[in-house]
Amino acid sequence: MKRLTRSAQRALDRYLHTLRTCLTGSNAIDAHEVEHDVLGHIEQELSECREPIAWARLQIVLDRLGSPLMWVPEHDLPSWKQLLLRLRIGPEDWRLAYASFALWMLAVVALLAAYEPIALGALLGSFVTARAARAFGGELDQSDRSKRWLTEPALATAALVLGGAVLLSVLPAMALVSRELVEIDTLRLQFPSVYHISQRLVAVFERPVSWGWIRSALLHGGPWLLLPLGAWWLVLGGIARWRPRWFAITFSPGRPNCAARVGRLLMIAGALVIGTGVAIGLVKTLSIAI
């Protein structure tokens, strides 16, 4: 068999899976033989194409072959097989995408009605089904683009929640570390400046989180809060930029280019946060000196 692109190989595997599902169980037809013959047909059709064969080229051949669902009259199959077929294949390829959108809608409604546990469960379910729909549909080729509108809300919501948590995860870590540091007496005696910084950070993190918190955090925590945050974003940006696949696995399945773009933006944001931290530190030092 000629070498296919990844999306073409997935489309072929899916087609053969459908073929096997449709024909297995029929007493009159040897499913294995038909699969072999159909593969021979596809190979013959693609014999003059340049490798790797693209999805679009393969799809022309598969369209001409037609869906295996149409090949066998239903009455040739036992009734359990007919039922199984209806449940497993066909235009129901869309079931996962629809399920994802329905669960996402349920999550929104549950959130508005203040049923948080249901909202969380539905959101998790919508994310899992959206990822499954994407994995099942392969890369976003022409036929799958329309499914994107059904799966994107779940993926975007999950990316926002998870992304926010990852971006800000350094703050609780800092709160924890600074709380531990102020408990160490030797630190107070031997490194008083580090001790004072830890004290300031503890004071910042003890205030209730609100819009005013950001202002007071910048005023009191200043550079000591922003420098680690910026450095963390630089690290995350670097991972997304140079290891886009790692980032794409979680946030943007099938689109490593998008991950690289986000990585660049995150690194710029990290540098800006560090710059702001340094600027606040300088202003404070200068104002004290004056």
Binding site: A28, I29, D30, V38, R64, G66, S67, W71
Partner: peptide, 17 residues
């Protein structure tokens, strides 16, 4: 194109059987 090319293969298998 109303009868797809793939339809032939199950028929060949059945006729052979």
């Amino acid at each position: 194109p109303t009868v797809r090319e793939g339809t032939v293969y199950p028929i060949l298998s059945r006729l052979k059987q």
